[in-house]
Structure formats: structure tokens, C-alpha cells
Design a protein around this nucleic acid. Structure first.
Lengths: 135, 135
DNA sequence: ATGTATTTGCAAAAAAGTCGCAATTAGATT
DNA sequence: AATCTAATTGCGACTTTTTTGCAAATACAT
């Protein structure tokens, strides 16, 4: 996936640099992350370069923003990770990835009927996880 | 709905004040809004009070954040408006509310099976609207 | 009408994000 | 492999956004 990322950058006329790779790798290590986690987790890159990488990745469709557990989070887009959604436990705060074929096909059908041509979508669920229900 | 809001505040031990009402009314006038729109739209309240109202409303479940068209937006929760989702046109930038019974029941079913107890969810769709497809 | 804890507005501070620019570097060219 | 050049970096200064302390104001319970 890192190779694909490099190609993606180069195809768009951008260079593969150390700061960009460090930021991309950070995204790969987490499902959901935040700007401040990136800032403190990418130690070899300057603050400004991290912000610039985030903006570039967003523009190139490498990452996108979501809200999970009420907080703004960032993650890789479907092109650079497997398509999935998130379910957030309001008690323990853990986020879990959710992938469900039926839900996706229903969503597709509804969108087709709407007249809109769907490009992407995201579903965020707040819930109580099985473990936390037992208390 | 404003009465319900007032009760909600008082039940939680907070006072109904002019700044809070102004911010709440602003949310009622828009579907999706942003912090900066609130800051420039609520002229009778101080900047700090607007931030404090936003934080309080979030804590009390009056509003919640969503990402629409790649931007962080805020809106009233289901308790203070009709349950709906958003479809955002990537070309013209307009957001449209979406409410679909079948989608909701599918989602419920999937969640029941997952073992999680769902509390709330949100779906954000990026798409091209019918008008923009014609160009 | 009064008392009191909450909330406000203000101004100052902290945090988050942006920008200009000289030095560096990726990668195309020879 | 050495050279060239436009893109990118790191740095610091700057702007914007958000938070906070505090005296004055006010909602609302009594």
C-alpha cells in the first residue's frame, strides 16, 4: 500500500519525501487518528510539514475526516485501506471497525433511487459495546 | 422545540440565558452550521459565551458534530430536530437532508446482530446531485 | 423583593494553524 | 554519476481559533 501511495503522489506531480512518508505511515498504524496525535507522533517532521502533508493528502483523496465519538478524526480513505465504518463505545471509548455487505448494498440502492450519483459515504455509530453492557 | 430546549437546560441544572437562546435559535435556522457561522451570526452574544454554549450543548446532547463535504459541521441532534442524514453535492456544495425508513431499519437490524446496543448514528454521503450531473 | 450560585463580557493567554523565505532535496536530464 | 531545477522542507513570525480568570450582571429559588 505504501507503493500505491508513492505512485499516487507522483502521478499527481508531487514528490515522495521523508515527512510525507512518515505521516502516511502514521495513518497506516492507526485506524482513526487526530491532528494532535500526528503532531506528537511524527517526530522527524516539522509541524508545518505535517500540516502541509495532511492538507495535501486530503486534496489527493488519501485521507478524509470523520466524526467518531463526537471528536473529529482522520483516517485513510477506501483507496488506501479496506472500506469500513466505525462503531464507537460511549462508555469505554473504543472504536471498532464495521464492514457489512448488506448495509452497503442497501445504501447503494437507496442512493440510486435518489437521483444522486454517490461517490462515497461514511457511517458513524455511537453505541455501548457488549463488554460495557455487562456492567 | 424551544420550550423543550429550555426544559432540557433546566433539568440539567443550567440556566436559560439570552446567549444560549440566541445560539439555540441559530441552530434552528440552519440544518448544518459551523462554529464560524455561529460566531458571526450570533451578534448579541460574546465570542466566549458562544463557545461556552456550544460546549454545553454538546455535553447535554443538544447538538453534535458531523463531517459533510469534508468539513466539520454542527447540527441539532435527533432530540431537537427530525432524524435525518445528509447528502452533499461535491460540485455545487449544497447539502440536502435525507430520511429513509428502509435504510434505518436495515441499520437497526445489523446493529442488533452486532451485539452492540446502538445509541445513535449518522450517515454522510458525498455525491453529485441530479442538476450537476446534467452538465 | 432578596440571596446566591451561575453565567456573562471582557481582556489576556494559550493553542492551533498558516505563511514567507532561504536552504535543501527529489528526481528528471544529460 | 554529476548537474539542474522546481518542489519541498524547517524555521520563525504571524494570524486565527479557542480557552480561561475574574469582576459585574442575572436567572431563578425562596
Amino acid at each position: 500500500m505504501t507503493e500505491k501511495f508513492k505512485q499516487h503522489l507522483r502521478n499527481a506531480g508531487h514528490k515522495v519525501t521523508a515527512p510525507r512518508l512518515e505521516v502516511f505511515c502514521f495513518f497506516q498504524k492507526r485506524d482513526l487518528t487526530t491532528v494532535s496525535a500526528l503532531l506528537s507522533g511524527c517526530n522527524r517532521a516539522d509541524r508545518a510539514s505535517i500540516y502541509r502533508a495532511i492538507a495535501l493528502f486530503r486534496k489527493l483523496g488519501v485521507i478524509h475526516d470523520v466524526v467518531s465519538g463526537g471528536k473529529r478524526m482522520i483516517e485513510l480513505t477506501d483507496s488506501f485501506t479496506n472500506h469500513h465504518h466505525h462503531i464507537y463505545c460511549l462508555k469505554c471509548g473504543k472504536s471498532e471497525a464495521v464492514a457489512n455487505r448488506k448495509l452497503e448494498s442497501d445504501l447503494d440502492m437507496i442512493l440510486r433511487k435518489s437521483g444522486f450519483r454517490a461517490v462515497s459515504h461514511q457511517i458513524e455509530i455511537d453505541a455501548i459495546c457488549p463488554e460495557c453492557q455487562d456492567e
